[in-house]
Each structure stands twice: as C-alpha cells, then as structure tokens.
Design a protein around this nucleic acid. Structure first.
Length: 424
RNA sequence: GGAGAGGUGCCGGAGUGGUCGAACGGGCUUGACUCGAAAUCAAGUGACUCGCUUGCGGGUCCGUGGGUUCGAAUCCCACCCUCUCCGCCA
C-alpha cells in the first residue's frame, strides 16, 4: 500500500508516477473522498470527545450521590448521532482504502518506461551461449528418455500443467534444491526456514496478492478459507508481520524451499509444452527485510546471490530491468534473470528479484526501531527466486545435453548426485 | 472429534461497569551516588492516528468482529488462536 500521507499531500505526483505504469488514478474523485473523510473524522471525533467528557461527569456525579437523571437526558441523542457519524466515517474510509489497496507500488526513478517485456532494459549478460554440432532437443524430448519426465502420467493423476519425474531426474531435481539451499545458507548469510504451504487471507493481503489477484491462487475452502502459496514470498515475508525489530536484528535474510501453486488463469495456450509453466513447481526463495537506507544495496546483493547459482551451474543468462509496464504489482524495481534455453533458442525468466520498498511493510506493519529516533519505522522488503527449480532443471538438461541424448551433470551438482557425471 | 482452561503493554501478572492506557514486579533509558562497576535511590518508558502545528489539543486500540449501556478490559453473542486431558493419526 502506498503512503496515505503521500496520497493526501502529493496526489498529482502519485498520479503521474502511476501513469508511467499505465494506471489511471481518478484524482478528483480521490480528493473529494479525502475532504469528505477529513470532515467526517473531525465530526466523529468531536462527538467522541463530548461523549467521553459527559460520561465521565456522569460517573463523578453518581459517585458523589447526585441525581444523574438530568445529565442522562442531556446525552439522550448523543449515542445515535455518534453512531451515525462513525458509520459515515467508516464508509468513507472503506471507500478510500479499497482504492488505495488497488493501487500498485510507484516505480523507482531508475525503472525504464515501457508497455511490456519488449521494453525491458538489458543490464548485462554472463556466460557463453553453448553451440552444438547437432540439433539440440528441448527438455521435453530429453526427459522422455527412459520415462524420466512424464506429462501424460501427471495428466492422468491430476490434469494438465503437472509433471512426474522419475529416477535420476527426480534426484537431479532434488539435488538442485539442496545445492541452492546450501549455497545461500553457508555463503550468503540466509537463515534456512521452513514454512506452511497454506496461508490465510491476511498473509496474502500483506504481500499484495489479495485483494486484486485472487484468480491466480488455488483456494482451499473450509471453515476458514486457506490458500495454497503461489510463492514462498507469502509465508516468509509474513514472518515479519506485526513485528518491530531492533536494529541489531537486521538485516533479516531468509531462504526457504517450498512448492508453489499457481492457477495460471489467463495463460491458456502460453507455454503449454513442458515444465516452463506448471500449476505446481518448486522454488528456493530469498527474502530480506532491511532498513530503508540499505534497501537498494540489498536488491543488488540479492540479485547477485541468485546470479551466483547460475554461475556455479555454468548457465548463460542475462539480467534485465523490468520496465514500468512489466513491473509486478507490489514492486518498485525488479531485475529478472533470464537463462538461455537451447531448446527455445531464447532467454527465459528463471528468477525475479524485487525491491518492494515499504509497500508490503505498510500492509504487514513490519517495522524496526530506528535507534536515532527511537521510533518504529517501516522496513523495506525484498525477495527473489534463488532459483526456480523446475526451470533450472530445464536449463541444465537443455544446456548440458549430449548428441546421444544423455546429459552431463554440472560439476557443482555432482556431490548431490552421488558423484554421478552423466545422466543416462 | 469430546472435556476443560486461557488470550491484557517488551516480559510476568493484577484488574468483573465509571477519573483504567491500565496496579504491582521485572526489563529498558536517563539522572544521582561511585575512581569505575554492582547494589541502592529518583524520574521516565506502548502502538496507531487526526486537527491546528517549533508546540499543543484530540481520537482509537486490553485476541477479532458485533451487541447492551450515558459510560465496557470488565456484561452478552459469534468467531479466531493458545494450552491441558481423552480419542484418532504421520
């Protein structure tokens, strides 16, 4: 959520920045609601003051043994007027809040303007795009070998956009998870964290998936509705909800491996082949909570942590800054890491590293106590995939394939594969 | 699933209708004492928010949401969560 004070005091600038994202804010309507809010709030609070003072004097009079009937008569209609005023204020504030909850974060100045991913800005490339003296297969064909990867089986068990892995392929999948967790915990200073895969609505409001993006989620109906997590970002970032951290407890760096569940509504016909876009996939997620001053340095560091995984696996990739039109709802700046996939002859997203500023923290009431002021201040939250496991598996298969369909195991993963050098 | 207990400030823990944002203890901060420290003494110590604004004055918050009342931490209703015992279970 945006800073309500900014919305009040500099609405024109907010509207201007939102326009960069292609979002139109009805400033006239908003200003009108704000004025209304102000008027109603003063009115309601005046009535509350009156009620408080009068009730107190009734209490005193009664204690003194005086007749309170005349006093009671004086306040006869106060309750009704107060109730009406409070209701009007609540309605008005509700309306303002529903607008505010629907507004995305403001893009940082360094974010390029643009409409869609075609306008993203490439920052750098790493690694050599492999060349083959044969026509490389994609991961679906490679995985079909020996029944290691089977989409039909998964379709029978569940439906489309699921996969089953078998034998060494399943082990390679697991090896990637272990490898990534080990690197981030031992070398990058993250604390390994295990979290629930079902979350309540409050958590999803906190990180911004609700109220706007419910259709992307799998909902589990029950006495109290729960949702399957679309990313570990939700449970992990919510660890900081309603917290006030001391300065020496920061920065917080969490890493968690979780499955992720996405309904992929609206992506019909997109990436229907293979493991690129599934309803269920694994991810190792990096999450940080830091003071504002460290926010942007933390984004660079976090992106570097994710990059280091690709580098150790020897996978060519590029880093792009998402343009305003491609930026996620809660993010003010995002770097995507795109890995080279020989099967598609293209760079494809494998990690998304975002700085949310205080946008999530405000919804979460995630704060820290600034020793300089002694006051609680909103934290800045960040997260990034480090990395998406399914897509990394795809990248390893396609980039390390041999002419006969076998696959070399990247050296970094061999300790996790019992020393195995070649799959197949 | 059955039975019971409970959710109060950073922590422990009082408070069962009126000056309670909340006793008391601990913690923490500051000051005094001390060469220094400990002990002791004194003062201070919640969050959020509104209006005018060096400052001042309000409001809200005692699990959450409703209700009763002039007035609710205290009474009523619903829900959530935690703990104990029994059952079931990986």
């Amino acid at each position: 959520m945006l800073d309500p004070r900014l919305l009040r005091n500099d609405l024109a600038r907010v509207a201007e920045l939102l326009a960069r994202r292609g979002v139109t804010l009805d400033t006239a309507r908003f200003e009108q609601l704000e004025q209304e809010r102000k008027r109603l709030q003063v009115e309601a609070q005046t009535l509350q003051t009156e009620r408080n003072t009068r009730s107190k004097s009734i209490g005193k009079a009664k204690a003194a043994g005086e007749d309170i009937q005349p006093l009671l008569a004086e306040v006869a209609d106060l309750g009704d007027r107060l109730k009406a005023a409070e209701q009007a204020l609540a309605d008005c504030q509700g309306e303002i809040e529903s607008i505010a909850l629907g507004l995305p974060n403001l893009p940082d100045d360094s974010v390029p303007d643009g409409r869609d991913e075609a306008d993203n800005r490439e920052e750098r490339r790493w690694g050599e795009v492999p060349s083959f003296d044969f026509t490389p297969l994609d991961h679906v064909d490679l995985g079909a070998r020996n029944g290691w990867m089977d989409f039909d089986l998964a379709a029978k068990v569940t439906g489309s956009r699921f996969v089953t892995l078998s034998g060494p392929m399943a082990r390679l999948h697991r090896a990637l998870i272990q490898f990534m967790l080990d690197v981030h915990t031992t070398e990058h200073g993250y604390t390994e964290t295990y979290v629930p895969y079902l979350v309540n609505a409050d958590s999803l409001y906190g990180t911004g998936q609700l109220p706007k993006f419910e259709e992307d989620l799998f909902k589990v109906p029950g006495e109290r509705d729960l949702y399957l997590i679309p990313t570990a970002e939700v449970p992990v970032t919510n660890l900081a909800r309603d917290c006030i951290f001391e300065a020496d407890e920061l920065p917080r760096r969490w890493v968690a491996h979780t499955p992720c569940f996405r309904s992929e509504a609206g992506s019909y016909g997109k990436d229907t082949r293979g493991m690129i876009r599934q309803h269920q996939f694994e991810k190792v997620e990096l999450v940080q909570a830091v003071p504002e001053a460290e926010s942007f340095a933390a984004l660079e560091a976090l992106t570097g942590h994710a990059e280091s995984i690709l580098q150790r696996l020897g996978l060519a990739y590029r880093v792009v800054t998402l343009c305003t039109g491609d930026l996620g709802f809660s993010s003010r700046k995002t770097y995507d890491l795109e890995v080279w996939l020989p099967g598609q002859q293209a760079y494809r997203e494998i990690s998304s590293c975002s700085n949310f500023g205080d946008f999530q923290a405000r919804r979460l009431r995630a704060r820290w106590r600034n020793p300089e002021t002694g006051k609680p201040e909103l934290l800045h939250t960040l997260n990034g995939s480090g990395l998406a496991i399914g897509r990394t598996l795809v990248a390893v298969l396609e980039n390390y394939q041999l002419a006969d369909g076998r696959v070399t195991v990247p050296e970094a993963l061999r300790p996790y594969m019992g020393g195995l050098e070649v799959l197949g």
